[in-house]
């Protein structure tokens, strides 16, 4: 099975970002969180509260998944295994909200 062996280490020990990058991302995550809370408290922002909060939390979500969970550097298959169910879950949430007349 030697022809299948290549890539075993290449994929799992890909050059991950170092500690500096991790801290940088943590700073970004913190700033976004602060921003979210700010939007919540500023009345002028309330007309766009829902779309802006959804965008920001999606951004946080993506950052953690891509960098802390290494999906950006890892094999595509792992992304598929995770992202497809996530899309399905999101579709289920939206479908149920529609069926129950939430929007």
């Amino acid at each position: 099975m030697t022809d299948h062996e290549h890539g075993e280490h290449a994929t799992s020990e890909h050059a991950h970002p170092g500690a500096k990058a991790y801290v940088g991302i943590a700073v970004i995550l913190t700033v976004i969180t602060a921003f979210e809370v700010a939007i919540f408290y500023i009345p002028q922002m309330h007309p766009v509260l829902v779309p802006s909060l959804l965008t920001l939390s999606a951004l946080k979500f993506t950052l953690v998944v891509m960098f802390y969970m290494h999906l950006k550097f890892d094999h595509r298959l792992f992304s598929w295994l995770f992202v497809m169910p996530m899309i399905l879950a999101a579709a289920v949430i939206l479908a149920l909200m529609k069926l129950f007349g939430v929007f």
Partner: peptide, 14 residues
């Protein structure tokens, strides 16, 4: 060695 070259445990976890 696995068919995809990926670790089975990690795949299970994803």
């Amino acid at each position: 060695p696995t068919s995809t070259g990926l670790n089975s445990r990690k795949m299970l976890f994803w």
